[in-house]
Computed example of a mutant assay.
Amino acid sequence: MLAALTGMGLSAAAGLNAYIPILIVGLLSNFTDAVHLPKDFAWLGNGWVLGVVGVLLAAEFVLDKVPVVDSVNDTIQTAIRPASGGIVFSATQAASEIDNSTWMSEHPWVGWLLGIVIALIVHVMKSTARPVINATTVGAGGPVVSAVEDAGSVGLSFVAIFLPILVIAFLIALAFMAVWTFRKVRAFRARNRRRPVPG
Rank of each mutant, 00 (worst) to 15 (best):
M1A: 13
L2H: 10
A3C: 15
A4L: 14
S11L: 02
A12K: 00
A13I: 02
A13D: 01
L16D: 00
L16V: 01
Y19P: 01
L23F: 09
L23S: 02
I24K: 00
S29P: 00
N30G: 10
T32Q: 05
T32P: 01
A34F: 09
V35Q: 00
P38R: 04
N46R: 08
L50K: 05
L50V: 10
A58L: 15
L63I: 09
L63N: 07
D64L: 04
D64M: 08
D64A: 08
K65T: 06
V66S: 03
V68Q: 12
S71C: 07
S71K: 02
D74A: 13
A79R: 02
P82Q: 09
I87Q: 03
S90V: 09
A91H: 07
Q93C: 12
Q93G: 13
N100D: 13
N100L: 15
W103C: 06
E106N: 14
P108T: 13
P108R: 11
V110D: 06
V124F: 06
M125F: 09
S127L: 02
T128N: 07
A129E: 04
R130N: 14
R130K: 14
V132A: 06
V132R: 04
T136D: 08
T137H: 02
V138E: 13
A140D: 04
A140G: 05
A140N: 08
G141T: 04
G141Q: 03
S146Y: 03
V148T: 05
V148I: 15
D150Q: 13
D150W: 01
A151I: 10
S153F: 07
G155R: 04
A160N: 03
P164I: 09
I165E: 13
A169K: 11
L174M: 14
A178K: 04
V185C: 09
R186A: 15
R191S: 11
R193A: 10
R193P: 01
R194A: 15
R195A: 15
G199A: 11
